[in-house]
Amino acid sequence: MDTGTTTLRTRIGATLRRQRRLLALGALSLLLHLVVLAWMDGRLVVNPPPSPLSSAATALAVRLTATAPAAIPPGQPAAPLPPIPPIEPIPPIVPIAPGTPAPATPAAVQAPAADATPAGVESFQMPSRYRVVMPPSVRLVYALRDGAGRPDGEASLDWETDGVQYRLALDGVAGSIESEGGTDDAGIAPQRARYRHGAGRAAVAFARERGTIVFESFGGSARDTPGSQDGATVLMQLAGIGLADPDQLQGEVEIYVGRADAAAVERFGVVGRERLVTALGEIETLHLVRTGAAPLEIWLAPAHGWLPVQLRAPAPGGGMRTQVIREIAKSG
């Protein structure tokens, strides 16, 4: 065999060996691809995609693990745990009396009245809050007329205040009442009032820090509310409401009043504007009427600081007793 033939056979053998290697590598690559595809197909079937809930749980577990406290070295005392805050007690539910009317305005809320006995607690509509400006010190003297319209002496209202504390003495058709106290964000805030009762006086205390009105002479108590008044200060509270914003004196004004033996919401309906003839001349007034078992009419004078320049109430022997302003003097 010559040299040329040998060289040709050598080249052909090398080429075949190279092709066989390439074929083997291709087959191996194909086999690996098939194995990977089979593995991925099995993983998709065995392990489906996690649901949102499982993802959230995994994330929560991760956060809990990440924020776990570090281990405490041996022999070192553990830090004390922070104290647990006390649980606020749930306020008791106050039963609503059947037939209780709905609130007159959205600002009004319900609050219980007397609490002398837990059973049968009466409920009422707590009045709306009003803006109030403290009236300045003043002394009012009235001409008093009896139920038949005859002169019957004089009536008076003495109001002394430094803008924070006050003293008030009232004597006339609305009763004989002495009052003292201060102010808060709801206006005049009585602390104690004394009502003439027969030959003596009946005392009433406004324990505002306890939210209670105490009838010291008759016994018992009632729940207090912001803006509550006594039988004398209610007149000056109406004046303060007019001083703060006359538009508040429309429709019906409601004020919670503590009297000698009980407390209740008193409603003053606005009748309208009237001109009165008085010893001080004609005065433009706003006429209000309190209805109920003890009716009372009040005329407030805008030009005179919304002070009550005329009052009228039933006379003991029939008819109406009236007191009309005769003098307005600065006091204090």
Rank of each mutant, 00 (worst) to 15 (best):
G26S: 14
R208L: 12
G175D: 04
G26I: 06
R273D: 15
E327M: 07
R11T: 15
T6P: 05
A329C: 09
P91A: 10
G198N: 04
A71Q: 06
I93V: 12
I90F: 05
P190E: 11
E284T: 01
A205E: 15
G220Y: 01
G175A: 00
L25Y: 00
I93E: 07
Q310E: 13
Q19Y: 12
S55N: 14
P50W: 08
D41G: 12
T322C: 01
V277N: 13
P74D: 15
T291L: 08
F124A: 10
R312W: 03
R267K: 15
P103Y: 08
I93G: 01
E180T: 12
L53Y: 10
I255H: 00
Q237A: 00
E284A: 10
E327W: 04
A108D: 09
A260W: 07
E88P: 04
P295G: 10
W299V: 12
L44W: 13
A111F: 08
L16A: 07
R192G: 09
R150Q: 12
L31Y: 11
L60I: 08
L16E: 04
V141P: 01
F206C: 04
G281Q: 09
I90L: 13
S179M: 05
A202Y: 04
P151Y: 03
L170G: 02
L276G: 01
I328P: 09
Q165A: 15
V257A: 02
P190Q: 11
R17D: 15
Y142E: 10
R192F: 09
D152P: 03
G220R: 11
V234S: 00
N47V: 10
G181I: 03
R290L: 07
E178W: 11
P302T: 02
Y195L: 05
D146P: 03
N47A: 13
T15Y: 01
R167M: 11
S128H: 03
D184C: 05
S331F: 10
Q237T: 01
A329R: 15
G251K: 01
A262L: 14
P308D: 07
A148K: 09
L23E: 13
A155M: 02
P316D: 05
R139N: 14
P98G: 06
A68K: 07
A57G: 11
H33D: 12
T117M: 12
R290A: 01
T225L: 14
G332K: 13
P295L: 09
A104R: 01
Y256T: 05
A113H: 02
V138G: 02
I87N: 09
R131Q: 11
P246E: 02
A70K: 02
D245A: 11
L311K: 00
E180G: 14
R223T: 14
I298W: 06
P92K: 14
R275C: 12
G319F: 03
R290H: 02
G163P: 13
P77H: 02
S137N: 08
P295D: 11
H33V: 10
A119H: 00
P73K: 10
P50G: 14
V45S: 08
G281V: 08
P246M: 00
P48K: 11
L44P: 04
G149S: 07
L286W: 00
G181A: 07
R150Y: 11
A169D: 13
P101L: 00
P112T: 09
V309D: 09
